[in-house]
């Protein structure tokens, strides 16, 4: 357990290479958007980070359900790891979005539906750690955290669909038929976008794997199990 598996080392290298490749692709291959200029390129990683964060939160909810059904603690480690990694990606999405918004909307933050629901989602998952730290026994902590992770999943579709359900100034990236607010991409942009989504999914799995190993080792140290 303590020694790093060879497969994880290979996966680390693969993740680093694909991330660097995606960054180079975005910086040197994708065209500069005609109105927004170079800052639009942040969009590729911004949306990908939001996607990875939401995926992690859904996985945390599923792992919570896994724990409640099986009562096996490794599901709790999965849930904990997914929430922490999801929070990191959520933070990346929020901060990169703010940096994009400053020159485009002329403000760092607007209380519009997408930004508000994203902030709420992030705060709810932060509360997950407050809950965990207030519970002593591993079983009780795992049980209540699992319930919390399952209930919190509701914020994911709420955040995702907020720009479709409410009036908003946030661009809609994926709009069937292309709405008024749909962000139109050239084929080259679309390819870079899809590649970024894939790379961030790989990054999510890699970081999750590391966090899971940490959770497992932490548990063993606390309980004295070998």
């Amino acid at each position: 357990m303590i020694n790093k598996p060879k497969l994880l080392t290979v996966f680390d290298i693969l993740t680093a290479l694909t991330l660097l490749g995606a960054l180079a692709l975005i910086l040197f291959w994708t065209p500069v958007e005609i109105t927004m200029g170079p800052v639009q390129k942040v969009f590729y990683f911004h949306v990908s980070a939001a996607w990875a964060g939401m995926l992690a939160f859904v996985a945390a909810g599923a792992a919570g359900a896994g724990y409640l059904i099986t009562r096996k603690l490794h599901w709790d480690w999965v849930s904990l790891s997914a929430v922490e990694v999801g929070l990191v990606f959520g933070l990346i999405a929020i901060l990169s979005g703010m940096i994009w918004a400053q020159p485009i909307w002329n403000t760092w933050w607007v209380w519009e539906p997408r930004l508000t629901t994203t902030a709420i989602m992030e705060l709810i998952y932060l509360a997950y750690f407050i809950l965990r730290s207030s519970l002593e026994t591993p079983e009780k902590r795992a049980r209540l955290s699992a319930v919390f992770a399952i209930i919190s999943v509701i914020t994911v579709p709420l955040t995702f669909f907020s720009i479709r359900l409410f009036r908003t100034i946030h661009p809609v990236v994926i709009a069937p038929g292309g709405g008024d607010s749909a962000f139109s991409m050239t084929p080259c942009m679309l390819r870079a976008f899809l590649i970024s989504l894939g790379v961030f999914t790989i990054l999510l799995v890699d970081l999750f794997w590391h966090r899971y190993r940490l959770a497992k080792l932490n548990y063993k140290n606390q309980t004295g199990e070998n």
Partner: peptide, 19 residues
């Protein structure tokens, strides 16, 4: 296009920095 090169550099720096 608008001159937003500094914002782009800041954006990617923040993303890579957090990671």
């Amino acid at each position: 296009p608008a001159n937003t090169l500094t914002d782009m550099i800041l954006g990617f720096s923040v993303i890579i920095g957090i990671l």
